[in-house]
């Protein structure tokens, strides 16, 4: 992913993962964090949930195979700050998340990777999930510029905090370059802080 890349829309099929408060330990169990790169981590997305579901997990549902938009519930990605969670989901094939709400660190990690997390009110989300469940082959179009998602249901208004939405739309989601451009102002701020100066007289 390049920092030049503007993220304006994500198109593709949806995958319906129901349930609230799905935490990052479930998305990627801790034993797969024993690594020094993210390579290969996509294969372990939701591994323990999938083993226990014995094939009945959304990520193993052949109807959703190849989906690029994951539909989730409330407070998705809560818990551990591990970026391994969105890394695993992205490497599994998801390029965007639509849910009722997202835990903040997960959301921030996704923005830093150029992955949109957008929200729908619960009733609207349930309608969309039901529609994708009934017709998993339908094409979803998530359009950040217009703030909409389009499906067989028509067009629904999605929400996303404006700062993050603009980072994606302007291709400024790889924050390192943006922050480096702060240049001397970073040092000026640092030097203005008494504790950075050691509380010198």
């Amino acid at each position: 992913m390049s920092s030049e890349a503007k993220v304006e829309r994500v198109e593709g099929r949806g995958c319906v993962l129901r349930g609230d408060d799905i935490d990052t330990d479930r998305i990627i169990p801790a034993r797969f964090l024993r690594c020094v790169t993210f390579d290969g981590i996509g294969a372990h997305a939701f591994e323990d949930d999938r083993l226990q579901a014995k094939g009945n997990h959304a990520l193993d549902d052949p109807r959703f195979a190849g989906a690029s938009i994951l539909l989730v519930g409330r407070n998705f990605g809560c818990g551990s700050s591990r970026e391994h969670a969105p890394q695993a989901l992205w490497r599994f094939g998801f390029q965007a998340f639509v849910g009722e709400s997202f835990a903040e660190i997960f959301f921030g990690n996704c923005v830093a990777m150029g992955l949109p997390c957008v929200t729908l009110p619960r009733a609207e989300l349930t309608r969309l999930m039901d529609s994708v469940d009934l017709d998993p082959q339908q094409r979803l179009v998530l359009d950040l510029a217009s703030g909409t998602i389009t499906s067989k249901l028509g067009t629904q208004a999605i929400a996303m905090p404006d700062g993050a939405r603009r980072q994606l739309l302007e291709g400024a989601w790889d924050a390192t370059a943006v922050l480096l451009a702060g240049g001397d102002a970073i040092d000026a701020t640092a030097d203005s802080l008494p504790y950075v100066r050691g509380f010198a007289a």
Partner: peptide, 16 residues
């Protein structure tokens, strides 16, 4: 924070 933000702080001592 997550790993991309760790990178940001290492490189810039800042967060967005």
């Amino acid at each position: 924070i997550g790993t991309s933000q760790v990178r940001d702080v290492l490189a810039t001592q800042c967060l967005a």
